[in-house]
């Protein structure tokens, strides 16, 4: 327990978290501080490229083994399974309709790559090693949750989920810009290895945390605006789900990580992926596939509740749990 508090305290006072807090406070206080849309997109492109590239380099250095393939499979299964758990919890805990519950569940089966990046940063700062291919696992966990949500809708008596999935939506999900960049940068890092990294390290290693701070400032602003605009929309029980679901999801990640025999950092990252909720890829897919669902509910919950929780308290908790479980 002492370790969790120490890690949480250290995490809360890091420039990354304080930047997020600044953005959140500024938005809640109705400051006119804002990051232009184009700048925010540029920051996200930088972060996705850097994290993907470094993951590929790590795989090039350590080689490919069976655990990589099994980890990808585990990520796929977790992403497909977690929406079922989230849907069950939402229906039991809240009075939300099946449609809104399914849309929210899809967000919680998918992942937040920013939370993953922040967790990697915490692990790096603490000198805790992790498998470089976890980036690929993150990419594998983006899409299956969407299919599970549509299946839930079909099963709940809504219209046929398959009809909602047209060819364009399949392409948008599988070739989503974030996934293409993450997987592409991973492949480039894998192909070029340490030599490639040495050539561009001054660009993708040294400035990384500074860029992450600016990006999280923006995320804080967006989350704060969402919370302000949705005040009164989220019932207490829905808010509670936003805290409970990551704690449930992390246990699934912990079990999968232990079964796979991942390192301490690898287990922690799989827990983070299972505990996080998407607010980029899935919201867009849900607007196309389930337009009747209220987007303010799912976005505010994933970005305004679960994301800050994971960033501040969740990550230290997951790292401490992974350390206790693996003895690392």
């Amino acid at each position: 327990m002492t370790e969790i508090f120490a890690l949480a305290g250290q995490n809360l006072l890091s420039p990354i978290i304080l930047s997020f807090a600044l953005g959140l406070a500024a938005a809640l206080a109705r400051s006119d501080l804002s990051v232009p849309e184009a700048a925010a997109k540029a920051l996200s492109i930088y972060l996705l490229f850097a994290i993907g590239f470094k993951g590929g380099v790590a795989v090039a250095a350590h080689g490919v083994d069976l655990t990589l393939a099994l980890s990808l499979l585990a990520g796929f299964v977790l992403s497909a399974l977690l929406p079922l758990v989230a849907f069950g919890l939402l229906r039991a805990m809240t009075g939300l309709s099946a449609l809104d519950a399914a849309a929210i569940a899809a967000h919680y089966g998918s992942i937040s790559i920013v939370t993953f990046v922040a967790a990697s940063s915490v692990l790096d700062s603490g000198g805790i090693g992790y498998e470089g291919y976890m980036v690929a696992v993150a990419a594998a966990m983006e899409a299956p949750a969407i299919l599970s949500a549509l299946w839930l809708i079909s099963r709940s008596g809504g219209s046929d989920g398959a009809r909602r999935m047209d060819r364009d939506l399949w392409r948008e999900i599988l070739l989503n810009g974030s996934i293409v960049l993450l997987v592409g940068a991973f492949a480039i890092g894998w192909a070029t290895g340490e030599d490639g990294l040495a050539e561009i390290s001054s660009f993708i290693v040294s400035p990384f945390k500074g860029v992450l701070c600016l990006f999280l400032l923006d995320m804080g602003l967006v989350a704060g605006r969402g919370l302000r605009q949705s005040a009164g929309l989220l019932q207490m029980r829905v808010l509670a789900f936003g805290i409970l679901m990551p704690l449930v999801g992390c246990v699934f990640g912990l079990a999968a990580g232990m079964l796979l025999g991942l390192s301490t950092g690898g287990v922690a990252l799989l827990m983070v992926l299972s505990a996080s909720a998407s607010y980029i890829a899935v919201p867009a897919a849900m607007r196309v596939a389930l337009p009747e669902a209220n987007p303010a509910l799912s976005l505010t919950l994933s970005l305004g509740v679960t994301f800050p929780f994971n960033l501040t308290l969740g990550i230290p908790l997951y790292v401490a749990m992974a350390r206790a479980a693996t003895g690392g």
């Binding site: 849309e37 925010a40 602003l221 605009q229 980029i280 919201p283 867009a284 987007p295 303010a296």
Partner: peptide, 15 residues
């Protein structure tokens, strides 16, 4: 009817 929204800082297309 769906509330206020702004493009500032958004990185996804959903909103």
């Amino acid at each position: 009817r769906s509330g206020d929204w702004t493009r500032a800082g958004e990185i996804g297309r959903a909103s």
